[in-house]
Amino acid sequence: MSFLRSIKDRFCPPARSTATTAKERLQIVISNERLKRDQIDFLPNLQMDLVNVIAKYFNVDLDQIKEQIKVDLESNNGQSVLELNITLPDASLDEL
C-alpha cells in the first residue's frame, strides 16, 4: 500500500500531520505550565524578602506583617503584572 500512498502523496500532498499539531500544542501548554510552576516556587521567597525589607523601615511585628502582604503575578498577552498589596497597622508609623 505504501507505493500507492506515495503516488497519492505526490499528487495531493497530505494536510499537515496531526503529530506536528500535537507537538506545537504541547510545547505551548507545557511552557505555560512550567512558567506557573516556577512562579509558585519563587513567590513565597519574594514575599519573605519583602517582609524583611518592610520590617527595616517600619515598626512592625514580622509575624503580623506576613499576614498583611499579598503578592500576585499575572501574565497576560506577553505582559506580566506584579501586584503588591501591603496593609500596615497604624502603630507602625509611630516612633519612627
Binding site: 500531520s17 503529530a19 500535537a22
Partner: peptide, 14 residues
C-alpha cells in the same frame, strides 16, 4: 512515519 504519532525526537524535545 505516517505523521499520526509523536516521534521519539518530538517527545525528547518537549
Amino acid at each position: 512515519e505516517r505523521g499520526d504519532m509523536l516521534s521519539v525526537q518530538d517527545v525528547e524535545e518537549i
